[in-house]
């Protein structure tokens, strides 16, 4: 019979060898939180429980003159508000016609045009700034994120609809003529796995993957410049629904960039405060600060004056914040933006 000391020793040996190999179960543990805390100060809000200015806004963009362009999914409309929150124009078109909306999503602005996505349409709807319909740009792949470059170039993250396809950032002119397709990701197992939000930062693209723990900077050829994991958390779990593999939670919901190139990444499920924690990264991908927004949001937007916009009241309210970074020792504080 084996002495008890030997058994204890063997058990300890097994534990010592195997324990590091066994990963703990995924939990919503927040992660690298060593960065400084930045604050936000609400400077303006639009829409409330008492009025009907907004019903369920989804997308937002601010024009050079400060006008706020909003897509309201539940009101089937595009809306333009001035700096004081007055409704200037609205284009309400519920229906299935070529100029009508069924499920409005994101929008983007160029100098003369408004581009909007409808979830159930294989195209991008184009309006002038008076919200008069102009034309539609065909894009059969679903679009997860829509942006415009300063020169008016349209940029869209296109999601593959078949296994084996790769997602692309599609660059096109305002008529929809393809200028370039930048391929990224390669998740053959889960076509939705490489879905991402992105921003244009200088000459590069920065992607926040929606269902992977990955924030990535790419150049215009698709070469990865850096890749970061902000959480000590695995990628989203997938589960099968009627034979289709689906992610069960968002890891990163959105990304925005300010004038200095700082990147603002909105945390999803794994965040300490899901849909409220914003991780601020330097252009090089280092964590600079974290922000906790007062309300959960699906969306971040930063305007030309570096004000941050997010959601409140489940889509009835837009809130505009000034971001207050802690002063760094020996560094001149940033100039405060004017409202």
């Amino acid at each position: 019979m084996m002495p008890s000391k030997a058994i204890t020793f063997l058990c300890f040996g097994f534990w010592a060898v195997l324990a590091p190999l066994v990963r703990p179960a995924a939990s919503a543990t927040p992660l690298k939180q060593s960065a400084a805390k930045a604050g936000v100060e609400e400077v303006w809000s639009l829409g409330s429980l008492e009025d009907n200015k907004l019903l369920m806004w989804v997308g937002l963009a601010v024009d050079d003159d400060g006008s706020l362009y909003v897509s309201d999914a539940l009101d089937y409309s595009l809306k333009v508000f001035d700096l004081k929150g007055r409704l200037l124009r609205t284009g309400r078109r519920a229906g299935t016609g070529s100029e009508e909306f069924q499920a409005l999503r994101e929008l983007a602005l160029s100098r003369e045009l408004v581009f909007a996505i409808d979830q159930y349409r294989p195209n991008i709807l184009v309006f002038n700034k008076q919200l008069q319909y102009q034309y539609a740009i065909s894009q059969p792949r679903p679009i997860s994120c829509l942006r415009t470059l300063p020169d008016g170039t349209l940029a869209a993250a296109c999601v593959p609809i078949k296994k084996g396809e790769r997602p692309v950032i599609w660059l096109a002119d305002s008529r929809g003529r393809t200028l370039q397709e930048i391929r990224y990701g390669a998740d053959a197992a889960h076509p939705a796995g490489d879905r991402a939000s992105f921003v244009l930062s200088g000459p590069d693209l920065v992607l926040a993957y929606n269902f992977k723990n990955k924030v990535e900077r790419l150049d215009r050829t698709g070469r990865v410049i850096w890749s970061k994991r902000l959480f000590n958390f695995p990628d989203a779990r997938f589960k099968s629904v009627m034979g289709t593999q689906l992610p069960t939670q968002y890891i990163y919901k959105d990304i925005a960039v300010d004038r200095t190139g700082r990147l603002y990444v909105l945390g999803g499920g794994p965040a300490e405060h899901p849909s409220r924690d914003v991780y601020v990264l330097s252009p090089g991908g280092e964590m600079v600060a974290t922000i906790v927004l007062p309300d959960s949001t699906h969306f971040l937007y930063i305007d030309a004056q570096d004000f941050l916009y997010s959601r409140a009241n489940d889509g009835l309210t837009i809130k505009k914040f000034k971001v207050l970074f802690p002063a760094e020792p020996g560094r001149k504080p940033l100039k405060r933006p004017r409202p």
């Binding site: 499920a103 792949r141 679903p142 999601v159 939705a192 959960s296 699906h298």
Partner: peptide
């Protein structure tokens, strides 16, 4: 038609993003 599946998936991911905060 694969588009129908794509629409369903888009609805799902939008739901996850917009409504379910966890």
């Amino acid at each position: 038609n694969p588009f129908y599946y794509a629409f369903c998936l888009e609805g799902y991911v939008f739901c996850k993003k917009y409504i379910q905060i966890y």
